[in-house]
């Protein structure tokens, strides 16, 4: 220790290097020289991790671009069957939650524990609201595909509801306005008089909904992880671990939450607002 700058602004006592690690919290981990260094490192680590998250979604975006390029009309038509008002509400919900997270970080910085807990609580509520709305949107789609009542039937393609629309990719996929894509129309000529409705297998409309479900599903998984993180943050804030000198967990957790929001801000126009 002798060789480093002797004092740090927080005046942390020189850490004992033989010390164990279980006591995280406000204590400085043994391998850091200063609280400042520890905080910066943690934040940087989260930023790098966020880059990997962006690349993860980047793969889906690349597939999206490729197929939108290939089927621009299909994309525009397919997007009309998503529930845009609910998507918009969800966007607002998430944006507000970003604000509350930012306020929570600010409260932590100022040591306002009450406000911190309130903001984290509101964030939790908003996140849950998002998931409920998203779940409703999904169920709306599945309801037409025998999936809401019986997911097994959907997977096996067993029970057909005989509906004219099923937007869940799979054997029952039927896109209502797609001419030719489903082959279920009354035939002219001998060729399609025997055509069984091939549902959407092979239809580019299905590609859109597949990407929609994968992208929003992956996003929802991240939401669940984000909610878990915020719950833990709320718990440790409630325990009083967070102080104006040690609020790195709130800041780092907040970064993750912002990322989830930003991804949604991209997903929403890409899927709901295609023209």
């Amino acid at each position: 220790m002798a060789t480093t700058t002797p004092t740090t602004p927080t005046a942390t006592p020189a850490p004992a290097h033989e010390h164990g690690h279980e006591a995280h919290g406000r204590e400085l981990l043994h391998h850091f020289e200063s609280a400042q260094q520890q905080k910066e490192t943690a934040t940087l680590g989260m930023w790098i991790f966020l880059v990997t998250e962006i690349m993860l979604f980047g793969g889906i975006f690349m597939a999206y671009i490729v197929y939108r390029w290939a089927f621009p009309d299909v994309w525009a038509e397919a997007a009309h069957h998503l529930n845009t008002p609910l998507g918009a509400v969800n966007t607002v919900v998430l944006l507000v939650s970003s604000l509350t997270v930012a306020l929570a970080v600010n409260a932590a910085e100022e040591g306002n524990r009450r406000r911190l807990l309130t903001m984290l609580g509101i964030t939790l509520l908003l996140g849950a609201t998002f998931l409920v709305i998203k779940g409703y949107e999904y169920s709306e789609k599945f309801a037409h595909c025998a999936g809401a009542a019986n997911p097994v039937a959907w997977v096996t393609g067993g029970a057909r509801l005989g509906e004219s629309e099923c937007l869940v990719p799979g054997r029952n996929f039927i896109f209502p306005e797609a001419h030719g894509a489903e082959g279920a129309e009354a035939g002219h000529g001998t060729a399609d008089s025997y055509a069984q409705p091939q549902a959407g297998l092979g239809s580019p409309y299905q590609l859109f909904y597949f990407l929609y479900f994968v992208a929003t599903g992956l996003h929802a998984v991240h939401m669940v992880i984000g909610l878990t993180i915020v719950s833990i943050l709320t718990f440790i804030a409630w325990r009083g671990v967070i102080t104006p000198t040690y609020y790195t967990p709130i800041e780092v957790g907040g970064l993750y939450w912002h990322l989830i929001d930003i991804i949604w801000v991209f997903l929403f126009p890409l899927f709901y607002l295609v023209h």
Binding site: A70, F71, D73, V74, A178, H179, G180, A181, E182, G183, E185, G187, A191, D192, A195, Q198, L201, G202, S203, P204
Partner: peptide, 20 residues
């Protein structure tokens, strides 16, 4: 997959012959 590329001036009415 006739719906994917429709010649200008024509309607998207042709059935798909996929799998047939």
């Amino acid at each position: 997959n006739p719906g994917a590329q429709i010649t200008a001036g024509y309607q998207n009415v042709m059935p798909s012959y996929a799998n047939q």
